[in-house]
Write a protein that binds this DNA or RNA. Structure first.
Length: 558
RNA sequence: UGGGGUGUCGCCAAGUUGGUAAGGCACCGGAUUUUGAUUCCGGCAUUCGCAGGUUCGAGUCCUGCCACCCCAGCCA
């Protein structure tokens, strides 16, 4: 059951099926423990949301629990700011980890002891080859690597060297601890992989307590083991690492052995889901930050005005499989619109064009009662002011309509003002470029609901705002960040920076009906006929509402 | 070229002892509508990467191809 009330059951995904089988066979004594293990080196994006929903969702469905674990083994790239941002985003998405917050760095001491154990067992050795030498002796995809000359150091020598590495007696790169597996393995990950490297760097959590840091492959499986994880869910690119994951746990003969299961990561059209690329967009100033509303980050979507329910529903709809594909943006957009459908309606003009009602008295003023939602009566009504001069949407007027299907204003044409009268365009005042500057219209005073001409049929209905009462507002119209559907993998020589959409953000000065100015910051509302907007907390000021366009209305107009 | 994966409608995705192709998105109708919105009805894979084979019967089993993705960080 999702938050918007739709009970859209779907068949179990392959991971849930595996868990059902494991539970049936008693493999993990019926318990289910998962973890979401981000590296705090950037903000979470919607691809992470998929993993978060999977890990927390599976734990919840099977009555287990899920850890939020910071995979902080590389002090050079990780910061406390990212840790905080990640926690905020996971929580905002609607998931709670309670006491189960962890950091790989919590286990550094235990990890170190396991490493000595590996050395004792003759399964790890200190290698003193340089970085380049290690690379050169690793072999290639088709050729086996050659064993390190240090591979047969005695247990005693290895132990002493490793302890001295920890003690800080060596410089970065002098030595590494390597697993002793098989330099001829067709799986490159098994060619004596590095387990520990010297890194004289300040760690955001452990400070200067350590100068050697464990590598991902070594850390991850043991962290999973230490936390009692049963099903370690990760993306497909780690499939080749599973033999190493298993090797470490098998070699150490841990009493519990989590099962790694891989699924395909999310790809979304017209955006990019790679922390590296997103980081570049931020660092090079192509966007205003990780939380720029155009970013596919959780923070960006939040700031755009998207609700977490929409993101969760999206993750639910796309499913979990092992086949890689690219989801169309329309799938996400559909979820966002569905979620926003119940929001109140209002009249607002994004790009104003002045209209003067020539036969409406200058000093007259009326207030029309309008429902806040056409279908949801519970949302009540409000009063909308009306007077001789109005703003209408520039797009709702055209000198020469292309065809008879056109339903808006044009010279001589009639149209109904939403919740108000029918008007006819009698005259167009033009500017230097021949553009419309003002429309002079006549109004049919009998055409309002209840009036003698209320039933008169006109081609269309347009929205409007009283010029006298309207409140000026900043409109931030967001659109896709890239012009190509797959900016991360362009066929020709272009790079993602070459296909940024110059119109991904368009600023407009508009007008909104008075009641919108009284809304609480953070409110979401549909501007009728235009789209859903978010009164952005970060930018709005008391007398200065700033609205983000979350998404346009669906437009079926051929 | 070695290893590991994946291929079911434009996109996502069910299909698990072989029995005669769910659903969602998109799209196309049509109804309702003072939002070209919403809602509502209806349509949308004789076919499952390709080619053979087994079988009364195959998306599901076998064989052989093809395409695409991942791997040679002291990143995760």
């Amino acid at each position: 059951m999702t938050d918007n009330g739709t009970d859209n059951a779907r068949p179990d995904n392959f991971i849930e099926q595996i868990i059902h089988k494991d539970n049936a066979s008693g493999k993990f004594a019926g318990g289910v423990v998962t973890r979401f293990p981000p590296e705090p080196n950037g903000y979470l994006h919607i691809g992470h949301a998929k993993s978060i929903c999977l890990n927390f969702g599976v734990a919840e469905r099977f009555g287990g629990h899920c850890f939020l674990r910071m995979d902080d083994t590389n002090p050079l790239k990780e910061t406390a700011e990212y840790v905080a941002a990640i926690q905020r985003d996971v929580r905002w998405l609607g998931f709670e980890w309670g006491e189960r917050e962890s950091h790989a760095s919590d286990y550094f001491e235990q990890l170190y002891e396991f490493a000595e154990e590996l050395i004792h067992r003759g399964c790890a050795f200190v290698c003193s080859l340089s970085l380049d030498e290690i690379r050169a002796t690793r072999g290639t995809l088709t050729e086996a690597g050659t064993p390190s000359p240090y591979r047969d150091r005695s247990v005693e020598d290895n132990l002493e060297l490793f302890r001295r590495m920890r003690a800080g007696e060596f410089a970065d790169g002098d030595h590494v601890l390597r697993a002793k597996i098989d330099m001829a393995s067709p799986n490159i990950n098994m060619r004596d992989p590095v387990l520990y490297r010297v890194r004289r760097a300040h760690h955001q959590r452990t400070g200067n307590a350590w100068c050697i840091y464990p590598m991902y492959d070594y850390t991850h499986c043991l962290s999973d083991y230490l936390e009692g994880v049963t099903h370690s869910l990760c993306t497909l690119e780690f499939e080749d690492h599973r033999p190493l994951y298993d090797w470490v746990l098998d070699t150490l003969a841990t009493p519990h052995h989590p099962q790694q299961i891989e699924f395909s990561r999310l790809n979304l059209e017209y955006t990019v889901l790679s922390k590296r690329v997103l980081n570049t967009l931020v660092a090079d100033g192509h966007v205003e930050g990780w939380d720029d509303p155009r970013m596919p980050t959780v923070a960006g979507l939040r700031r755009r005005g998207v609700r977490p329910q929409a993101i969760r529903e999206f993750c639910h709809r796309i499913g979990i499989t092992r086949s890689d594909g690219t989801v169309e943006m329309s799938a996400l957009e559909r979820c966002i619109r569905d979620d926003l459908e119940a929001m109140p309606r209002a009249l607002a003009v994004v790009e104003p064009l002045k209209v003067v009602l020539t036969n409406y008295p200058e000093d007259r003023e009326e207030w029309f009662t309008a429902p806040n939602h056409p279908q949801v009566e519970m949302l009540g009504t409000r009063e909308i002011p009306f007077c001789r001069e109005l703003w209408i949407e520039r797009d709702d007027f055209m000198f020469d309509p292309p065809n008879k299907k056109y339903k808006r204003l044009s010279p001589g044409a009639e149209v109904r003002l939403r919740y108000g009268y029918i008007i006819r365009c009698d005259e167009v005042v033009t500017g230097n470029e021949g553009e419309a500057v003002e429309l002079r219209c006549s109004v049919d005073l009998e055409s309002r609901a209840g009036g003698a001409n209320a039933e008169r049929k006109v081609k269309g209905v347009i929205h409007w705002v009283s010029l006298r009462h309207g409140v000026a507002a900043e409109m931030r119209l967001y659109d896709r960040l890239f012009t190509e559907s797959n900016p991360g993998r362009l066929k020709d020589g272009r790079r993602f920076t070459d296909v940024l959409n110059p119109d991904s953000l368009v600023l407009r000065e508009g007008f909104v009906e008075p009641y919108l100015a009284g809304l609480d910051v953070g409110a979401r509302v549909q501007f009728e006929r235009t789209g859903w907007f978010y009164l952005e907390p970060e930018r709005s000021r008391p007398q200065r509402p700033v609205f983000n366009r979350i998404i346009t209305l669906r437009d079926n107009w051929a």
